[in-house]
């Protein structure tokens, strides 16, 4: 092996800076959880619009899905951070600024809300009409039906697909260093500036991401399978 390759695989530097880098990884997790919450909430809202009886609501929901599913997350992050504040500032006549963290969460949250909306919609539409008839016949109101009859089934049905989307979202958090969110990749570039040896850091950052995603996604999948099996035996 060449010296360059050996150096690129050497964990020593990564280990030396592990605390700083781990703090960076924690930031990936913060962005992930906050963006996931935004994506789920807005995604559910958009899905409810898309299955609404009134056509204008459906249009709004469809527009939302199409816009955000087709927006590259990279560009969305930059746009939300630098252009959206100007736009909002103009609207309310005041200077607006987002912290990098907030921009990242808004951008990723909205992009992924487009995907989650479609998953929610498919789940909602897969509920047999009869389940709703039975609930209405018992005198349940529409909100109760949504919360007690529709959503619990939708969540179970959408879990496998949702896990894949969570994985994508987590991977997407690795580009937030673009606007200086101090995540793992950001810390890697900071250390690189001092040590001038980026390659081993990239190798071990990649491995770290892989292990984290593999373990978390794997246990989520097992958990959701176990939970689904009881019902769809």
């Amino acid at each position: 092996m060449s010296d360059a390759l050996i150096d690129a695989l050497n964990p020593a530097l990564f280990w030396e800076y592990r605390l700083v880098l781990l703090r960076g990884l924690a930031f990936n997790a913060y962005v992930f959880f906050a963006a996931a919450a935004v994506a789920l909430l807005i995604g559910l809202a958009a899905a409810l619009l898309r299955v609404n009886r009134a056509r204008p609501f459906r249009w709004v929901g469809t527009l939302h899905v199409e816009v955000f599913r087709n927006a590259p997350d990279y560009i969305m992050i930059v746009w939300v951070h630098f252009v959206l504040p100007l736009l909002l500032g103009k609207l309310i006549g005041q200077r607006v600024e987002f912290s990098p963290f907030v921009s990242a969460v808004i951008a990723l949250g909205f992009v992924y809300s487009g995907y989650f909306a479609e998953t929610f919609r498919a789940g909602i539409q897969s509920i047999p009409q009869g389940h709703l008839d039975a609930a209405r016949a018992c005198g349940m109101g529409e909100t109760t039906i949504l919360v007690r009859i529709i959503l619990p089934q939708v969540v179970r049905r959408m879990l496998p697909e949702a896990v894949n989307q969570f994985v994508s979202l987590f991977k997407a958090t690795t580009i937030v260093s673009l606007i200086a969110v101090p995540d793992l990749m950001y810390q890697v570039s900071m250390v690189t500036q001092q040590e001038m040896r980026p390659l081993p850091l990239y190798t071990w950052a990649a491995l770290t991401y892989f292990v984290v995603i593999y373990l978390v996604a794997g246990s989520l999948r097992r958990l959701s399978e176990h939970w689904r099996q009881k019902i769809y035996a």
Binding site: P128, G130, D133, R136, A137, C138, G141, Q153, I231
Partner: peptide, 29 residues
């Protein structure tokens, strides 16, 4: 909705809620 409480309905396709146990189905409403 209030008046529907007074009319129990049984369907050809049963329409049980699959994510709830038998007891869960019965106590829900």
């Amino acid at each position: 909705s209030r008046m529907r409480r007074d009319l129990g309905m049984v369907f050809q396709q049963f329409n049980l809620w699959p994510h709830m146990t038998v007891i869960g189905n019965v106590i829900e409403a």
